[in-house]
Design a binder for these strands. Structure first.
Lengths: 120, 120
DNA sequence: TCCTATGTTCAATGTTTATTGAACTATTGT
DNA sequence: ACAATAGTTCAATAAACATTGAACATAGGA
């Protein structure tokens, strides 16, 4: 498991590059939807976005750039957005991206909150 | 000269990808600094950022993704940010990126407003 | 008309990136 | 101990990307 960067190590170009990939943007978007609930999702919750190994690749990038944090629990990994760190480093950026993504939810292939929740 | 996209054609992943490159981010940043003045800069004003042909490559990407508009005047090209279009599509995004870049101006190799203005 | 200045386009190069399937690790439950 | 589950890592591949220098196009001034 690659190490998470500290708050100060989070860099703007890396974050923007991470968010520019449609799959990673969808992951971040789903994590943002989840913030009103447990704030966490498991890797398996994103299986609609592609093959497992490809998702693991994107998860690693999202961790390495500081966008999300991973917590290991048994055989599962629980992930959440590093909202506080991102807000401290780049105020308003994450919300602007997520709101913009929500506006284009149909154009991007973003899953709505309901679709995520009914996986149970 | 590649065509500019219409406002509705501007896509979030493309915009974020454009902004994730340090050279393009520096170009956008300098254009933003200029918005209190003429709002425009010529290609040559960015010669500190690299070779001409490489800059032309980045200019094209910035045009094609809808971040900036080019106006031809004689042998020069004048460029400005498409702030209104971007604000309409992705409210708050451009400002959040520019403010974040300003915070990290030393970490990124961004030129300050004074350095740009004294080119006259 | 010729020279210069301003940019773009092209071809070539090396790097990074996204994607896939197979192999692997580790944890849980029986 | 065995099998199933959840993810990661690896090797390979194809596509996209950034960078460079040379060639090209075009407008303006002597």
């Amino acid at each position: 498991m690659p190490p998470h960067p500290t708050r100060e190590q989070i860099g703007l170009p890396m974050v923007l590059d991470c968010l520019s990939d449609p799959i990673r943007l969808a992951i971040v978007y789903q994590l943002a939807q989840q913030e009103r609930g447990s704030s966490e999702l498991r890797c398996g919750d994103f299986s609609g976005l592609g093959a497992k190994s490809n998702l693991a690749y994107h998860f690693a990038k999202l961790r390495e750039c500081g966008l999300m944090q991973t917590r290991v629990a048994g055989t599962s990994r629980f992930m959440r957005l590093r909202r506080e760190d991102l807000e401290a480093r780049f105020p308003g950026l994450l919300d602007a991206v997520i709101n913009s993504a929500a506006r284009d939810a149909d154009r991007l292939q973003l899953v709505s909150e309901c679709d995520v929740v009914d996986a149970d």
